[in-house]
Design a protein around this nucleic acid. Sequence first.
DNA 1: ATAAAGATCATT
DNA 2: ATGATCTTTATG
Length: 199
Amino acid sequence: MKLPKEFYTRPDVVEVSRDLLGKFLYSNIDGVLTGGMIVETEAYCGENDKACHAHLGRRTKRTEIMYQEGGVTYTYLIYGMYTLFNIITNVSGRADAVLVRAIEPTEGLKEMQLRRNLPKIQPNLTAGPGLLTQALGITTKHYGENLSGNLIWLEDQGIVIPETEILESPRVGIAYAEEHALLAWRFRVKENPWTSKAK
DNA sequence: ATAAAGATCATT
DNA sequence: ATGATCTTTATG
């Protein structure tokens, strides 16, 4: 079943980020159903987090959505070529978000392979934040999409990743965040081949 | 108006 | 290690 709004509006984005492992992310874009199980996430904690786009309460056209109540998408273009997909969490006024970094594909494999322009199903199909959006057909057009809708949504299918199977490590690509660069807010399913390669 | 940097990835 | 590629953001 779909995750209820209360899943997203919880106050601790780090906890939500951890809980998202084992949940299923689906998209039905251009009439194509694709999706998979989330195996890697990162938490971004609002104004007090130097790595967060809403650091120091920054409010711009891009970050505006982060201040909404949890349960909507935050997509944006990075390095001129990749769309990253985030889930907004916490109550209205708190700019917390979870970056989905990798999924284990389960639905619409063929279509995802086509979108990624790959010769066969291989580990880099959906292993990386810029790659899974390509596979799922998610672009910046899907900014602010409500996750209770039928375009992009998440489901709980009863899978629980035991705590001993969760790997916690520092986030990727945020060296500029100084002391916050060391926080272990990246969560991965241990030994899952569909997690991203980034250091 | 201009410039710099970026929550990445594939290639050398 | 480097290049691709372009939006967002800060600054003047």
